[in-house]
Simulated assay, not measured.
Amino acid sequence: MTTWTPADMPDLTGKTAIVTGANSGIGLPTALELARHGARVVVAARSAEKGEAAVARLRQAVPGAEISFGRLDLADLASVRTFAAGVDRVDLLINNAGIGMIGRAETKDGFELQFGTNHLGHFALTGLLLPLLVAVPGARVVTVSSDAHTIGKLDFDNLGLERGYGRMTAYGRSKLANLLFTLELHRRAQRAGLDLLSVATHPGATATGFVKLGPLQWLLGVFLQKAEAGALPSLYAATSPAIRGGEFVGPKAKLLTPSETARSAEVAARLWDVSTELTGVRFEEISHH
C-alpha cells in the first residue's frame, strides 16, 4: 500500500468537503488535493485573516475550484454551533485542526484547552453536522489522531486536568479521545445501518507550525516529513475505496493498530456519554441504537 499517492484519488465532483484547520499545517495540502479532485472545499479556521489567505492560495493553485472560508473556533461551542448552522451539505468532514504541547489553559466553555479543542470541539461539530452527513451517500468523517495517543490516559474524575497537567500527556489524552470517538462513531453508525464511514489517521511527524522551536524551527524541516506527506493519510482515509470504516491510517497509507485503551468499547461509550453531557450535542440519528 506504500505506493498510494493523491494521483490515485477518485473524482470528487459534486462532493463538499469541510477541513478544519485548513489554513495551515497538513490541513492546507489536504484541502488542496480535495479541491484538485473536484470537491467543493470549505476552509474552516479560527482566524478570518489566515482562512481567507488560505482560500486565496488554494484558488490560485486550483483555478475555477469552489473554495470558501468558514469561521470556526473549536474552543468555543457557540462558534461551533454557528458554523454548523451555516453548512448546507457535507460529504467529507476532515476533523484536522489541533493544538498541542501548550501550558494549561481553558476553552471558552471552561474545558482543558487541548481536550476541549482537539476532542470536544470536533465531537460537537460532527454531531451537529450528522443530519447532513447521513443525508448523502458514502459520507465520511476523518479524524486526525496521533501515535501520541498511546501515552494518553483518561481519568474521568480529572477531565479538567487541574491535577497533574503535562503538555505532552494532555496532548496524548486528546488524541486518545480522538481515536475512541472515531471507533465509537464507526460502531454506532454500523449499528444504525447508516452509510457513513468513520476513520482515524496518524499523519506522522510532520514539519508544520505545530511545534515551536524558535530560532531552531528550521531543524524541523530537516528531520520531519513535509506537510504534503502528512496530509496523505487523511486523503487516503477520505477517498480510498478500500476504506471500510473503523481503520487507523498512518504514514504512507499503512493501517496501524490503535492501543488497547483506544479499542475499548467500554471506555469509548463512557467518553461518548461524558462528551454528550459536556457539549449538549446528542447525535440523534445514531443515539437510539
Rank of each mutant, 00 (worst) to 15 (best):
residue 181 F to Q: 07
residue 107 T to M: 05
residue 151 I to E: 12
residue 124 A to H: 07
residue 231 A to F: 09
residue 84 A to E: 08
residue 132 L to A: 07
residue 210 F to A: 07
residue 6 P to D: 03
residue 133 L to A: 01
residue 21 G to W: 00
residue 228 E to A: 12
residue 207 A to D: 14
residue 185 L to A: 09
residue 244 R to E: 14
residue 5 T to S: 13
residue 61 A to K: 02
residue 77 L to E: 02
residue 138 G to C: 13
residue 156 F to T: 00
residue 98 G to D: 08
residue 288 H to C: 13
residue 76 D to E: 11
residue 38 G to L: 11
residue 43 V to S: 01
residue 198 S to M: 08
residue 255 L to F: 15
residue 113 L to T: 10
residue 140 R to C: 05
residue 69 F to A: 06
residue 240 S to G: 07
residue 36 R to C: 09
residue 194 L to N: 06
residue 169 T to W: 13
residue 155 D to Y: 01
residue 242 A to Y: 00
residue 252 K to L: 13
residue 245 G to W: 09
residue 129 L to Y: 02
residue 252 K to T: 13
residue 85 A to Y: 05
residue 56 A to Y: 01
residue 92 L to S: 02
residue 71 R to Y: 04
residue 96 N to K: 04
residue 236 Y to G: 07
residue 288 H to D: 15
residue 97 A to K: 01
residue 157 D to R: 13
residue 186 H to D: 14
residue 140 R to V: 07
residue 278 L to S: 00
residue 173 R to K: 10
residue 64 G to A: 07
residue 87 V to H: 00
residue 133 L to E: 06
residue 260 E to H: 14
residue 221 G to T: 05
residue 140 R to Y: 11
residue 154 L to G: 08
residue 35 A to P: 02
residue 154 L to Q: 09
residue 156 F to A: 02
residue 155 D to S: 09
residue 18 I to T: 03
residue 245 G to E: 05
residue 138 G to K: 08
residue 242 A to E: 15
residue 180 L to S: 05
residue 40 R to T: 12
residue 110 G to L: 08
residue 136 V to I: 11
residue 256 L to P: 02
residue 230 G to W: 06
residue 50 K to I: 01
residue 47 S to P: 00
residue 115 F to T: 06
residue 58 L to A: 02
residue 125 L to G: 10
residue 113 L to F: 08
residue 166 G to L: 11
residue 193 G to W: 11
residue 58 L to F: 01
residue 5 T to Q: 12
residue 97 A to C: 08
residue 153 K to M: 11
residue 143 T to K: 06
residue 53 A to G: 04
residue 33 E to V: 12
residue 115 F to A: 03
residue 225 Q to Y: 10
residue 188 R to A: 02
residue 143 T to N: 12
residue 206 T to W: 03
residue 221 G to P: 01
residue 206 T to M: 03
residue 178 N to P: 05
residue 276 T to G: 15
residue 20 T to R: 02
residue 266 E to V: 14
residue 61 A to C: 04
residue 235 L to W: 10
residue 270 R to A: 12
residue 281 V to I: 09
residue 158 N to H: 00
residue 288 H to K: 14
residue 235 L to Y: 09
residue 256 L to D: 05
residue 92 L to Q: 11
residue 21 G to N: 05
residue 215 P to I: 12
residue 182 T to S: 14
residue 8 D to G: 08
residue 144 V to P: 06
residue 243 I to S: 04
residue 23 N to W: 00
residue 25 G to Q: 11
residue 250 G to D: 04
residue 270 R to P: 07
residue 251 P to Y: 06
residue 84 A to Q: 03
residue 172 G to T: 12
residue 288 H to Q: 15
residue 280 G to W: 10
residue 246 G to N: 03
